[in-house]
């Protein structure tokens, strides 16, 4: 148990420098813009007075380390700055957009796990044809970009079948059913590729355990095949599956940026892309910081879960 705690503790400590470095990168985002970022943000018609005001507001007239310190203390106190167009605090923008992105990505991941893992098990234990079909499905699914899949889903479900709305969004607090209706196509578009990755990983991991002596032993002991597969082999194969699911969550967060823009879901990705075209750098900064932090935390969680599922991992780290 103490080894386990030490493993979790070490893993959390290792995350801190990554978070700090990420924050420095995000901090530099505005400062690296060629020329005068404030002038670029405000446009050529901005008076020198305006420029000076905004520059002072952003603290851009102070030395860099001092700027970083002011900014990061603000961030840690939940102050990500202000949208200079709408004058709303970034945190309240994120309060609306982050739950949407989370709903989209978590639902997509859930769907991918619920479909991909059982199919992967099936592809590993059934005959040659299941393997061939699943192999073909995987290659096809990972070759289709999620935004094009989304467009084709709209064409089918809206254009031909008239079943679902093409895009838009209703807050979940207003109408749960409608909210889900608007989420179906984005989630499907986002989940297909992930399903394929999880299927492939599950299949490979299951096949990796198939030759282990304990499997033969359990069969010899007279356990039902189903018990051996789902209780023992899947448990032993879960390490790679969890790891890949964690890595793929990053891909999912990236994919969500595109899918949100396609389906007009007001999530963080749409916020960031919209802000880039408006040169609204403070909003870009806030959105990038939140998504990157989320990704780092998911990776941390993945490693911890992997370690808990497979004690050999902590031992390897402790050695």
């Amino acid at each position: 148990m103490t080894a386990r705690l030490a493993y979790v503790g070490r893993r959390i400590l290792l995350t801190i420098p990554v978070l700090i470095a990420t924050s420095i990168f995000v901090f530099l985002l505005i400062r690296l813009v060629p020329g005068d970022p404030v002038q670029t943000m405000l446009g050529i018609r901005a008076t020198p007075d305006n420029v000076a005001t905004v520059r002072a507001q952003l603290g851009l007239d102070k030395p860099l380390p001092e700027q970083y310190w002011t900014w990061i203390t603000g961030v840690l106190h939940g102050d990500l700055g202000q949208d200079f167009i709408s004058h709303e605090p970034i945190t309240s923008l994120l309060g609306v957009s982050l739950p949407i992105t989370l709903e989209l990505t978590v639902l997509a991941m859930l769907l991918a796990v619920l479909v991909g893992v059982p199919l992967g098990v099936l592809a590993a234990v059934k005959g040659r044809w299941t393997r061939r079909i699943s192999g073909g499905f995987v290659v096809a699914a990972i070759s289709i970009p999620e935004f094009w899949l989304g467009i084709m889903l709209v064409l089918l479900f809206t254009g031909v079948l008239h079943l679902l709305p093409p895009n838009g969004w209703v807050p979940i607090t207003q109408d749960v059913g409608l909210n889900i209706t608007y989420m179906i196509l984005p989630v499907l578009a986002l989940a297909l590729g992930q399903t394929a990755y999880l299927l492939r990983t599950t299949r490979a991991a299951m096949l990796g355990t198939a030759g282990e002596p304990y499997v033969a032993f359990l069969h010899a002991k007279g356990l039902r095949t189903r018990t051996v597969i789902y209780l023992h082999m899947l448990r032993n194969a879960s390490g790679p599956i969890v790891t890949v699911a964690g890595i793929q969550f990053g891909v999912l967060l990236g994919g969500a940026i595109v899918v949100e823009n396609l389906f007009a879901l007001p999530g963080v990705g749409r916020m960031v892309v919209g802000a880039i075209s408006n040169r609204n750098y403070v909003v870009v900064q806030g959105g990038v910081l939140v998504i990157a932090t989320l990704f780092i935390l998911v990776n941390l969680l993945t490693d911890i879960v992997h370690g808990l599922l497979d004690p050999r991992v902590e031992e390897a780290v402790a050695r």
């Binding site: 470095a21 690296l32 891909v251 967060l253 990236g254 595109v258 960031v272 880039i276 990704f295 990776n299």
Partner: peptide, 15 residues
């Protein structure tokens, strides 16, 4: 430590 597409978008925000 960055999701790939987010990193690309951040760089494009700069450049």
């Amino acid at each position: 430590a960055f999701p790939a597409l987010l990193l690309a978008i951040s760089l494009i925000a700069i450049l």
